[in-house]
Design a binder for these strands. Structure first.
Lengths: 111, 111
DNA sequence: CCACTGCGTAAGCAACTCCTTAATTAATGA
DNA sequence: TCATTAATTAAGGAGTTGCTTACGCAGTGG
């Protein structure tokens, strides 16, 4: 059901597949055509096309058509958002320990 | 198909749902019973149970049974792994800009 | 012992995912 | 013009997800 169409969900969902993560890693070397991207995978071309669609929907890549080649380019802005969420949740947890620490210290001072 | 059972995929998939992210946020306030967790959501109790199962499978929570209450506790280790992936991919991109910067500077010096 | 509480599992359903093969579109070049 | 190359769309199938309602199972307290 649901399909969770909010931006953050789309990004995390896009990252929740090894093939798509590998594609993103590959794109760090620079813009690449679909055929070049598909080459290392034991998977049909349309399958890759569909993975790219998921990545595009999440805003993680851009596709521009020059001649009969589609060039894929990486976009990292959505990763910033995802990073912010994860870091915030790791951070808050540490804050709790910090608060506990502080609490224990103030208790010690009172005794 | 596929189901992508590697650890990182499980974590990202767990995070790819607003309800589950809200549950994790809620758990930052400390360990909580399932009923307490379910209360703010317009959703049946079993639905929450199933979300918790997904979070547990990803290693993001632990469930311990004391009396007839199941207490859910946050675990952030898997978030470290997810964070590492995201940061690495953001970082590499920035490196590329750094290299471009350096390149442009050296070109400027030559002219 | 028995009803009640807290939570899980079971079964079922619509929607989605991830792959496939076959057909289609679009640009290149002999 | 027509075959070739690059990629997408279409259609379909097996499996998964996210919810529901109904039921089951421990632990509590009368």
């Amino acid at each position: 059901m649901a399909a969770a169409t909010d931006e953050l969900s789309l990004v995390f969902q896009a990252l929740a597949d090894p093939t798509r993560r590998a594609i993103l890693s590959r794109l760090h070397a620079g813009p690449t055509t679909v055929g070049e991207l598909a080459e290392p995978f034991a998977m049909s071309r349309p399958a890759i096309s569909q993975h790219l669609k998921v990545l595009e929907r999440a805003g993680l890549i851009e596709r521009t058509a020059t001649a009969q080649w589609r060039t894929c380019t990486l976009r990292t802005e959505p990763l910033d958002e995802a990073s912010a969420w994860v870091e915030r949740h790791r951070g808050e947890w540490n804050e709790r320990f910090d608060l506990l620490d502080e609490h224990l210290r103030s208790m010690k001072e009172q005794s």
